[in-house]
């Protein structure tokens, strides 16, 4: 029997699911090996249980946590799909302010009575999926890489651990013989960011912002030294460190408490 797979979205742009919907000719091969039983972006079907659930988006409100926990109960394997699910996404930056401040900023004209005691506006605070339920595997990236999605899917079907690299983006960048951005006056997070994207941003001249998170043992101090040597201020370095990876900063703050 083909494994049943399902996709679910939480706070996100749904771009990662779009990557899957846009698999083009591979879609037919994917359909040969799995049954897609739930995928709101492309179909209306619902299912009672799944073999693999792919979760996109950060987990924001109590109702989201409740929904996610229900999915976890119905699936054998749970995969966090993309940066929002993996780390909390760019929206996690809003955790720097209180829920009240954020609501006021986003909905300045909203009436208190509409927001108060409304579960859709209850305590918005962004979490990664693994901060709410057990995550078996992660497909990192903003957005995810289609080839990597297929690699992970195939690995799961064959009972293998998904091949997500634990070496830095520099490795893939060097193998592609790109001109290192640091040598032309730019700076990137490649030395400590997790590879697997094929160094797509540096390959097109854009700086890596670590959307896939860091490798498991990054030498962060050395990375900060390098950015300082490039003339970046402490604020600018913090900006580099927080774009997609505010989760690590929050964790640091918590640990230093």
């Amino acid at each position: 029997m083909k494994p049943k797979i399902a996709f679910f979205d939480f706070a996100s742009c749904e771009g990662c699911q779009l990557q899957v919907a846009n698999l083009e000719e591979s879609v037919i091969d994917v359909a040969e090996v799995v049954d897609v039983v739930e995928f709101r972006e492309v179909m209306t079907n619902k299912a009672e249980s799944y073999d693999i659930a792919f979760i996109e988006g950060s987990i924001t409100r109590p109702i989201d946590e409740k929904r996610l926990k229900a999915i976890r109960k119905k699936t054998k394997t749970l995969v966090a799909l993309g940066t929002c699910a993996h780390l909390g996404g760019v929206q996690r930056l809003s955790n720097q302010w209180s829920a009240k401040e954020n609501l006021k900023e986003v909905y300045p004209d909203a009436k208190e009575k509409d927001i108060n005691k409304n579960e859709f506006f209850e305590k918005p605070h962004h979490k990664a999926v693994d901060e709410v339920v057990k995550v078996d595997y992660v497909i990192p990236g903003c957005p995810i890489d289609r080839t990597e999605f297929i690699k992970v899917l195939v690995a799961l079907i064959h009972g293998k651990k998904p091949p997500i690299p634990d070496y830095p983006v520099c490795v893939e960048c060097k193998k592609k013989e790109n001109i290192c951005l640091f040598t032309i006056g730019k700076f990137c997070m490649g030395p400590i960011a997790r590879a697997g994207c094929g160094a797509i941003c540096p390959s097109h001249g854009s700086e890596c912002e670590a959307c896939r998170g860091y490798i498991s043992h990054p030498h962060e101090r050395a990375q900060i030294d390098v950015l300082e040597d490039c003339g970046l201020s402490a604020d600018e370095i913090m900006h580099r460190k927080t774009m997609f990876t505010y989760k690590y900063v929050e964790k640091e703050k918590e640990e230093s408490k």
Binding site: Y167, P168, C170, V171, K174, K175, C180, G190, P191, I192, H219, R221, A222, Q223, D225, V226
Partner: peptide
């Protein structure tokens, strides 16, 4: 090595 990023570049090139 205190300054080393352990990025592997020196070996790859």
């Amino acid at each position: 090595s205190d300054k080393c990023l352990a990025c592997g570049t020196c070996t790859l090139v």
